[in-house]
Simulated assay, not measured.
Amino acid sequence: MEQQIDEKSDQKVDQKVDQKTEKTQMREVLDLAMNMGRVLLKNGAEIFRVEETIDHVCRRYQIEDVESFVMSNGIFITARDEEEDIYAKVKHIPLSGFHLGIVTEVNDLSREISAGRIGLEEARARLKEIEAMPPKRGRFRIFAAGIGSGCFCYLLQGNIWESLMAVLIGCFLYVFVIFAEKHKLTKILTNIVGGGMITILALLAIQFPWPFPVRIDKIIIGSIMPLVPGVAFVNAIRDIANSDFIAGIVRILDALLVFVYIAIGVGFVLGSFHKLVGGAWL
């Protein structure tokens, strides 16, 4: 009789241990899903992509009763098993820059998890490596900004000489942008100063007696393009199209404010120039 009681008590202890282990694993899976969503959202992924990634990871580990709510700067996840709520977490993610390489890598990791080709521990280690990915080297970003500025200037009916000036100004602009990132200058200051710097360089460029026509408006418009938040604007439209109206409106407002900051910088320099010399050099 005593032996039967001892066996029953041992079985109850084993069941409690198994339940505890299962809940611990569920929390680890949900933490992984939360962190993958955080990395995606921080680096410019769309709302639906974040929600799908969280859903795929949870389904892979048989966690069915999960609710996630993703906004432009936050993630809310709750989950429960048959007995009780086992997970509730809120993560604030400030609006920041874009790193589409990280987004691509996290998407690949999500597919590997869904296909069962990677375990939980390995997935967590891979996510840490992905999050630590550095941005492209400064000289490549500067070169790309210059080429982009020149190409946009040419597409906007600038001539070849105006496009070459836009290439140089775009390179100088991105040197300042990288400096601002290293010293953690605010988005407002970076875009206002960047817009003003472009205008000053364009004004200086047209003062030389070039043997060909040079129009300041074409140079400024082309050189501004590296500051324009094109990815943020497109993602905002996609979020609105997917009925994520709150996140889309927040993102589109953030993008529109960047346009305002750039316009303030350009307008301030042009206005000051006209007041000082009356625009006689234009």
Results as ranks from 00 to 15, higher is better:
G74V: 07
V13M: 00
G267E: 07
V266G: 04
V17G: 00
I169M: 00
R38L: 06
V250F: 15
Q25A: 02
S114K: 13
L256M: 15
S272T: 15
V266C: 15
N107P: 02
F259V: 13
F98Y: 08
Q207G: 05
L203S: 12
R215V: 07
V50K: 03
L41W: 11
G222Y: 10
V103N: 01
K128G: 12
A115V: 04
I216D: 09
K12N: 00
L164T: 05
D254I: 11
E181I: 08
R137M: 09
L173M: 07
F273L: 03
V70K: 02
Q62Y: 12
I102H: 08
V70G: 02
E121R: 04
E84F: 00
E22D: 05
T24V: 06
I113V: 15
S96K: 11
T21I: 10
M165N: 01
L257Q: 09
F152V: 03
V266E: 11
S110K: 04
S243N: 13
P134C: 11
L30H: 07
D14P: 02
A145G: 06
E122N: 01
R60M: 13
M1C: 04
I147L: 14
Q207H: 03
G148R: 11
D108F: 10
V66K: 00
F140W: 14
P211R: 08
